[in-house]
Amino acid sequence: MSENGHEHEHGHPHAEPKHETSPWAARIRAVEELLAEKGILTHEEVEAQIEYMEARSYENGARLVARAWTDPGFKELLLRDTKAACSQLGIDASGTVEFVTVENTPATHNLIVCTLCSCYPRAILGRPPDWYKSPAYRSRAVVEPRAVMREFGLEIPEDTSVSVHDSSADVRYLVLPMRPPGTEGMTEDELADLVTRDCLVGTAVPREPARV
């Protein structure tokens, strides 16, 4: 028996964590081995799930936003049926998890958190950032959202309401940020480049492109 209980040297980027020696990594390996031994999961299924997750990133969200900024019909669809909007862009979000997209406006800024664990629209955006899972963010984002956003460098004006969404049940939330001024005439790809991961959580907003 090899170190991992099976031969699995296929050179993917996720091969590295298998050699991690932290207690957490050891525990995960032990759990995986037990699940495989009991016939509940195969190693291949675990690998397939890791590959599924690693194929996703916030760039999917950036594409949704850029299309919504340039196509009012698509924006309407994104806000009404996020799964259908994903499907139109070839993003596979067809699993059992449901999604809702909330729109930032001059009157309302949205911020997403999951206080109970770290629920996140993984099927669209991939894995959440580490800070999203931290007890500090999860507890403070609901109590003092404006202070938390300030620490991210985002000051929300007093005449804009802050809506915090605690996604601790069955629905995962994405923020549709406002299109920044000075972006007229930009292509959809250029617009997508303005949308960072944090813009989709609400701890940032897309910035006006720097003038050359």
Partner: peptide, 29 residues
């Protein structure tokens, strides 16, 4: 049935540091 429920932040936290229009939304069974 799962509902979107909107709370006023000032109803949730004593001394909430923000304008009265700030809200918090939770999905509740």
């Amino acid at each position: 049935p799962l509902y979107r429920v909107c709370f006023r932040q000032t109803d949730l936290w004593e001394g909430y540091a923000g304008p009265p229009g700030d809200t918090l939304h939770v999905d509740i069974y």
